[in-house]
Computed example of a mutant assay.
Amino acid sequence: MKYLVVGPSWVGDMVMAQALFMSLKQQDLQAEIDVLAPGWSLPIIARMPEVNTGIAAPWKSGELALKAQWRLARTLKGYDKAIVLPRSFKSSLIPFFAGIPERVGFSGEGRSILLTDARRRHPTRAGSTITDKTVWRYMGLGASKAGYETYRFDVPQPSLTINKTNLNDVMGKLGLDPERPAIAICPGAEFGPAKQWPLENHRALAEKLVQQGFQVWVMGGPKDVEPGEQIANGQEGVFNLCGKTRLEDTVDLFSHCRKVVSHDSGLMHVAAASGADVVAIYGSTSPDFTPPLTDKATIVRHPVECSPCFERTCRFGHYNCLTGISVQRVLEACQ
């Protein structure tokens, strides 16, 4: 069977979607899987051996891009089934325009008419108990209707291919010592400040790790350059790599690290899929909903009465779920 999967728009979600691709391959070794997704994600998709081809989506955030979607859809031939992971109306258009005979996705946004199998999404929580996971949602769309009703999945752990040659090249260009053990710190979280441990704590953690003999790599995108500088500035052995690496470089660098300290963010999932040991700091979100999909993870939380709230900012302004996590506690998790 030949699949077109419409992928998600967040880094972490794209990594978790690999569990679906692995499951489809387990069900059918001959399955061909192409993934339609934002252009930035193609380097990550290229590290997923289950995927045949990554196709750049013709839309940007907030754009419908009907003409561009129609033109691309006309070039997509021979697919038996489309699996649409996002819930947006526009994400269902290309499989519909392409005439793919089976089109599975979640109902909502008035798009059920574009799908041949519109499924009702399970609730995230029942009271204070988390009852669903993002990865279950993705795997559920790849299951049969009967399998979706059962809603029980053996989740394979995402595993991105490591390019050792690229790793050595990147370390050389950045002036990183390949012999000194490294720990990465990822201070960003695109979701918002309710996921972010205080920068002064990251800085204090980096200082203590250097004292223990580690080099510390502060990693993130262009938006994290300034926070990275606040952590690294004036600290020998702490390198601010934010904005200096491509996403695929990050995969390879993580594979070299003794530990990766991250919030519940896209880079946490990338680190897990690179094979790194992950120290995952949770604030407003929950590891029951978006856990790092690896056996090599240590979860650090400070539960308070109002968490998990899944809010981008703290409605009370105290951020106690994050400020209550001590530097010493995270340091111990790095041992």
Rank of each mutant, 00 (worst) to 15 (best):
S92Y: 02
A19C: 11
S286K: 00
R74C: 11
A82T: 02
H302E: 09
R203K: 14
I325E: 06
D249I: 11
A19Q: 00
V170G: 01
K173T: 11
V225S: 00
G7K: 14
G39F: 03
S107P: 00
G127I: 02
V210C: 13
C242R: 07
T124Y: 06
S41F: 00
G54P: 08
F96G: 01
I299S: 02
H202T: 02
L29Q: 15
Q335L: 09
R119F: 07
V225H: 07
F289C: 10
S159P: 06
L29T: 15
D117R: 04
K244T: 13
E305W: 08
W217L: 14
I299P: 05
S23P: 04
G108A: 09
D132Q: 14
E226G: 04
L141M: 11
R103H: 09
Q30H: 11
G108C: 07
P156D: 00
L76T: 06
A31C: 01
D177M: 07
E102A: 12
R137H: 10
W40T: 07
D177C: 10
S159I: 04
I94R: 00
Y3C: 01
T165M: 10
I183Q: 03
P38H: 10
F153Y: 13
N168H: 12
N166I: 10
K208G: 03
A73F: 02
G237V: 07
T75H: 07
L66T: 09
P287D: 13
L36D: 03
L176R: 05
G105A: 04
A31F: 03
E229Y: 11
R329W: 00
Q26N: 06
S61M: 08
Q18F: 12
E149G: 01
A194V: 03
E207M: 08
D34Y: 05
Q211K: 15
A189Q: 10
D288I: 09
F89D: 12
S61T: 12
A126Y: 11
A37T: 15
G62E: 09
K223C: 04
N163G: 06
R120T: 14
A46L: 05
P156K: 05
V35G: 03
R137S: 14
I299A: 00
